[in-house]
Write a protein that binds this DNA or RNA. Sequence first.
DNA 1: GTAAGCCTTGACGCGGACGTCAAGGCAAGA
DNA 2: TCTTGCCTTGACGTCCGCGTCAAGGCTTAC
Lengths: 132, 132
Amino acid sequence: MRIGELAARAGTTTRTLRYYESRGLLPARRGGNGYRTYDEDDLKLLRQIRTLQDFGFDLEETRPFVECLRAGHPEGDSCPASLVVYRRKLAELDTLIEQLTSVRAQVAAQLTRAEAAVPGGPEPKCELGGHG
Amino acid sequence: MRIGELAARAGTTTRTLRYYESRGLLPARRGGNGYRTYDEDDLKLLRQIRTLQDFGFDLEETRPFVECLRAGHPEGDSCPASLVVYRRKLAELDTLIEQLTSVRAQVAAQLTRAEAAVPGGPEPKCELGGHG
DNA sequence: GTAAGCCTTGACGCGGACGTCAAGGCAAGA
DNA sequence: TCTTGCCTTGACGTCCGCGTCAAGGCTTAC
């Protein structure tokens, strides 16, 4: 299959596939006319990349998974190198979520504090004495 | 005070201050020699910007806070427009944290599944039959 | 033969918040 | 006077994953 079809079947664009090739992540064979040619295995590799990208993995981080599949393993994460990436990503996510949660709490505190001093801010929610 | 001193006192760089000025966020008066001149109020504005930046606010999102201070209010969040930004940011943070938590769970599940099939991966933690 | 629709490479654009370099002006100390 | 260290503007570089032309070639349908 050619680049347009592969892109369509993976729900991405030809530009993206050329970009992956430029990064050495998804090289393509060439037909006699210079057109890129792909097969079903390439589709599988591409889907692996896309899934990880959707999870927020950097492109480089998908490489072990791709190489794992290309080595003949049934899944991209059937290799130790892929598991290392998983674990690192989990740690990164934990750190990030922790930071964001901390920031959220601080912003919420600031908001609460500020609302108590701004006209039209507080808007008592369920106390007596108001119909509008 | 001049740009270098202000930058140092706020823990940032002169480049950053010039950038803020180029965005109209922190304009500076000029001395007879063309040098930028700042006062203590500018330091307060700058600290407000930096605090919000550290929270992950976009530069544009700090503008209401800066204008609030410049309007003479005691705090950058003493104005309704600032509270609107706070609330929007809280919503963004909630969405983001939720997404990241979801991704974390999915990655953790993949890791668990994959570990059960890779040599050297599982490493039973507390079951019988292993001292090394 | 020609228009449509695919493909090719090359190269610039984007967003955000600056970093970094270049070329030069101004002020103060030895 | 010369050096040092601050300051000025201008402009390109960074990171990342592409989007978006531009100019042209191949193939197929009519």
